[in-house]
Design a protein around this nucleic acid. Sequence first.
DNA 1: AAGCCCGCTAGACGACTGGTCTAATTAGGC
DNA 2: GCCTAATTAGACCAGTCGTCTAGCGGGCTT
Lengths: 214, 214
Amino acid sequence: MNMTPVTGDVRQHILNTGQVIIGGKGFSAVGLNEILKAAGVPKGSFYHYFSSKEAFGEALLQGYFTEYLAQTEERLTQPGASHAERLLSYWAHWRDTQHHCDPSGKCLAVKLAAEVSDLSERMRCVLQQGTERIIARLAQSIEAAVADGSLPQSVSAQGSALELATTLYQLWLGASLRAKITRDRVPLDAAFKATYALLNLDPNRSLTQERSQS
Amino acid sequence: MNMTPVTGDVRQHILNTGQVIIGGKGFSAVGLNEILKAAGVPKGSFYHYFSSKEAFGEALLQGYFTEYLAQTEERLTQPGASHAERLLSYWAHWRDTQHHCDPSGKCLAVKLAAEVSDLSERMRCVLQQGTERIIARLAQSIEAAVADGSLPQSVSAQGSALELATTLYQLWLGASLRAKITRDRVPLDAAFKATYALLNLDPNRSLTQERSQS
DNA sequence: AAGCCCGCTAGACGACTGGTCTAATTAGGC
DNA sequence: GCCTAATTAGACCAGTCGTCTAGCGGGCTT
């Protein structure tokens, strides 16, 4: 009955299940059996949809970034806010979702980058393209924020928007990594504060309504 | 003949061999066999020196941080330089050693943090204490640099030295992570430039020739 | 309507590696 | 020679990824 070459149902279900498990335990530490058992899918099906574990990981990352970029796009274009407000909302969201124990909201880029980039060239490329696109998207918003006056002109004097976006993304990557170590939100709060500084914003005047609850 | 309770020779040899291999491939992806074969040590011996693979990883990280902190201490106290110069030399060294393919100079904190902190509580604690001590040491040098005038007073107006050190360390952590993805030095160069900005230093004026005292 | 086709499921199986532990071997001091 | 402790060899089984054959079952062709 299904004429579509991509059988989205089961395949996507394996992907979703795998994302949660691998996001929690890593790539090498998780076996196919564990994912397949959790998904209720027999092993035979797996190799119908994916040619290998590596190909599965590749698809996993690809899907993750597609989804992430879509969410980011939405957040950076939400109506009724300046571009600077949208950017800060993006990072506030990052801060609030990544601090330690979110079950499924784990950032696969943070979790898998170090492990996978030395393990699989194909997965590394997906990681590279994904992060590159995120940074490019942030740079675009930074430029727009300078243009609409919600970020001071002085930020563009220091360097290109792409450089700034790169720095900020890497700052948050590192903060998330350290948050995994400390298991608290201190690293992410530090990153949030540093973001203000790097954007030449007054840290005392909040652009967004921050929620500072534990 | 050896009365010392810790048999350092073989044990340390396993540790050294393991550090290179695990630094390259990760923790879960490497089996004891691989390390032991490379070290020329029979498998049975392993469990004489370490109670488990986890305990081995714990000792590995502990040794790594001890060594790293000693090197850092040396670099941050080298004679004939201001504290700011020493700090920048620390980061310049980081930039030059971590950009992609250093065989044994891999930073275990970057490589293992994400993978291990969800896998082993004991290893996570070592990671936490190690990074904490590094940050504290950096904060100490930042304070000294403000005191000796090699960093402008304005940096202490923005927040505590510990906050700044935290931000900078996380920035470099994230830059190293992204450098693993991109396999070039662009992320680390961006971090270096951002470090100047966060320290309120003029990016165009190299610190090595400026000796303006307060 | 009958038959076929093929996407998909099912899970046993192979060859191998994982970490762990017991039992044997070695070596040293007396 | 023995006794004790340090060290090693290898068995152990659960687990790994990936293969392979068998068969279900819905939709198309004729």
